[in-house]
Every structure is written in structure tokens, then in C-alpha cells.
Design a protein around this nucleic acid. Structure first.
Lengths: 229, 229
DNA sequence: GTCTGCTTTCTACCATACCAGTTATTGTCG
DNA sequence: CGACAATAACTGGTATGGTAGAAAGCAGAC
């Protein structure tokens, strides 16, 4: 028996965990609007628990910058920070470009089939119109790029960047034609990768990520009250 | 009077804040070694406060992945994750390369004096041997690069990446000759920027950041017990 | 009508008590 | 002596009461 064995199961879910998840999705799906006051006692009563787990959940949300705890005053749902959004998008662009370069330099072709299958599934998805799956496949495509570049860890970074703009995307419509554009991008990106054309791949990656910019600008203009700065 | 004015002063420091800072620096300076058990009751007694603020501080440290709270078992100081370190370094490299490219494309020369002064101060620093200042000036140099690229926000990202490897650097010596190498790098980087030579600037940026890799490898090999994975 | 100062009410913060798991210890039995 | 089971000690999780501080409302003075 090695005492340094760590139990990684971590099955126990506390009340605070549940509350945290609940509040987090509520905030991210904008069911709780920026500026909403979240008092400990209030939330506790609402969910029929004591103030303590509420408090802990709020502390964790504060760390994620989803709420702002103002000691002795109030806890409110934060507005979205334009600068944070800018930063997340800058990081993602930088990372994806580096992925692109490394993929061109190191990719050995072993994922060709996986890429092909992924894109086929995306096509199928557009026909059935199930967008939830499309998002999953989109993520998978970028994960494959990371793997092709020999940076499997990098998908975590991309996920983190996406998480920071997620709340904002709820405000935009899911447009079938934009999904088609994304799929087209993916085809072009794969093509450039297969021909190891770094310049073209970088250009297309940049263009691909810029598709979101229009959406973001739109949302920021039409929901000014949800933003800081 | 606009009621939406938010008081940003946020002067109030709670007991939990103090504890958090204290424990955080203790962990980062390795005064608290990875694997150390931090029981709430224990810490509370040590600092003569109740368990409550201790608990809150620990939750925040858990979010930063500096400790791991295992419900009903124990809270321990986390080992450093090699994969997290890899990720942080990958992000930093990607970002600095993008900064380099943008700086070459957009820099208008208005920071020439600031760059020069910064490098002069770094030279002076090496002569006096005050390394604390050197770190500050090193950061300033990279901040200037961000500004030259028109991405002032990006320095925040770099700071975050640095924070994730900080704890590890405590284990290495501060070597005067390596500081000299860093300064030499900075001179070469500035030169490439001034001549708008993108390829060279990227190559030198990459080389510059790789200097830390040797240190990290060394630490990881000689302190295997401080790391995960 | 406006300003000032008090009071009331709300907030998050902290202390304490208790609970439910986990771990370590110890004592028993084969 | 060793395996194992009962139990004691300890862990973090939750509930609750009290406190200090901030905001809002109100009353009185000017």
C-alpha cells in the first residue's frame, strides 16, 4: 500500500459544486443578466440551502470574474469586459497561428482519415440542422489541428479562450449560412495543411477566426449595457 | 449623480484576503512544499482566526490550482503540473511571436527613446547586481514590445504565463551571466525590430524564450518530487 | 426646496457548532 | 505474529447567529 496514491476519482459533489455550476450556466446563458444583484441570503433561500455553500459558489464565480463581490455592499453579476474579450481573441489567434505553422512543419499524415471523417460529419450535420453537434465537431476539427501540430495540450487553451466569449455568443443568432462558411473554411484549411502551404494556412486561419469578430462587434453595439469599458 | 457609478476603490481588505496573499506567496516561494497538508483547523489556529476565512482563502488557492481540496480527506499543496507549464510556455511563445510580427508591421518609431532608455537601465542594473530591478526592466521591455505592436493588453497575458512558472524558478539560481545573455537578446531583438526584419525578429524571440527551457528542464530533473505527470 | 445628519435596513464577513465522510490507531482473534 | 475489525481522531461540508460596514430612507434645520 503506497500512501502517496492519490484518489483521483473525486466523486463527491458538494452542494457548493452544484450551486456553482447552476449559477455559472445561468450567467453564461444570460438567464442572469449583468448587473443583477445576487445576495447570499437571497440565493440561499431560493435554492433552499444555507448561506454557506452559496457563499463558496460566489467566491468561485468571483475568481472567474463572472460576478463581483463588493464587501459589505453587494454581489453583482459582472458586465462583460471588452478588454478581456480582446485578450482572449488575441491569445486564440496567436495560438492557432502557431499551431498552423507547426502543423505544416511536422504533420506526418497519420490523421488524414480522421480529418476527412470529421468534415463529412460536419456536412451531415448541416443537412440535419443539429447545431449542437456542429459545435462539437468544430471543436474536434481544431483539436485535430493541435494533434497534427504535435501540441495536443493546446486545445485546452483554445477551450479556455472560447469560454471567455461564450456568454456573448448567446446574444447572437445561430445562422445556418455562417455554419456553412465555417465548414468551407475548414475544407480550405485542411487543403492548405495537406499541401504544407504555411502562408496560405496562416491567412486562412486568420480569416476563419475573424468570422467571429463581426458577431462580437454586432453584439457589443446592440447590447452596450452588458459591457464594461 | 449616476447610480451606475461603481466604486472601484475596493479598499477593504478582509482577513481572507490577507490569508490568501500570505499562503500564496508561501506556496510560490516554496516555503510551503508541494504535498504539504494544509488542514483548515490547523491553519486557523496558526493564524489565530476562525476556520471560515481560512476556508475561503483555500478555495481561492484551489481555483488557482495551487492547492487541491479533497473533500473529507485533506487539502494539500499541489505539485507543479508539467503539462500546465508546457501550456503556459506555448501560449507565451505564440503570443510573443504574434507581437513580433505585428510590431514589425505597425511600429512607427515613437518608442525608440523608451526602448533605448530601458536597455541602458538594464545595463546599469547588471553592473550594480540588483536583480529585482532587472526583472522589472525585463518586463518593461516586453511591455514596450506589446505597445509597439499596438497590443498593450497583451502584457497581461505574458504576466499570467510568467506567473505559472514562477514557483519553479525559485529552485534555480539567479545567474549573472544568464542576465547578460538576456540583455544581449534584448539588444538583438530591438535591432531586428528597428530594421523591420520579421524573420529575424521571430527567430530571436524564439531563442530568447528558449533560454528558460534549460532552466525548467534542469529543475524538473533535479526536483522530480515537486512535479506531477 | 435643499442640505445635513440620524436611523433603519441591507450587505458580506466572521465565529461557532454540528455533521458526514475518511484515515489512522488500536485491540482482538485466529 | 499477522490479518482484520472496531473505534477513535481528524478531515472538509453545512447550518446558523452575531457583527461591522455601507446604502438608503427619513426627519429636521436652514
Amino acid at each position: 500500500m503506497n500512501t502517496s496514491d492519490i484518489d483521483l476519482t473525486q466523486v463527491r459533489r458538494t452542494t457548493a459544486d452544484e450551486l456553482f455550476d447552476q449559477l455559472r450556466t445561468d450567467i453564461e446563458k444570460l438567464r442572469l443578466r449583468p448587473g443583477t444583484k445576487l445576495s447570499e441570503a437571497n440565493v440561499a433561500q431560493q435554492y433552499s440551502v444555507s448561506r454557506q455553500p452559496v457563499r463558496e459558489a460566489l467566491i468561485r464565480l468571483d475568481n472567474l470574474e463572472l460576478v463581483q463581490i463588493r464587501p459589505q455592499k453587494a454581489t453583482i453579476v459582472r458586465r462583460m469586459s471588452k478588454s478581456t474579450i480582446r485578450q482572449a481573441r488575441f491569445v486564440r489567434l496567436s495560438v492557432e497561428l502557431e499551431i498552423a505553422r507547426r502543423a505544416c512543419a511536422h504533420y506526418d499524415g497519420r490523421l488524414d482519415e480522421a480529418f476527412q471523417e470529421n468534415l463529412n460529419q460536419q456536412s451531415a450535420c448541416l443537412e440535419t440542422g443539429i447545431f449542437k453537434d456542429f459545435n462539437r465537431l468544430d471543436r474536434k476539427f481544431h483539436a485535430l489541428l493541435c494533434e497534427a501540430a504535435g501540441c495536443v495540450d493546446a486545445i485546452d487553451i483554445i477551450d479556455q479562450c472560447k469560454a471567455k466569449v461564450d456568454r456573448l455568443c448567446v446574444l447572437s443568432l445561430t445562422d445556418p449560412s455562417s455554419a456553412q462558411s465555417i465548414l468551407d473554411d475548414h475544407h480550405r484549411i485542411l487543403e492548405s495543411l495537406l499541401s504544407r502551404d504555411v502562408e496560405q494556412l496562416c491567412a486562412q486561419t486568420e480569416q476563419h477566426l475573424q468570422r467571429l469578430d463581426a458577431t462580437i462587434d454586432y453584439v457589443q453595439q446592440n447590447h452596450e449595457d452588458y459591457f464594461d469599458e
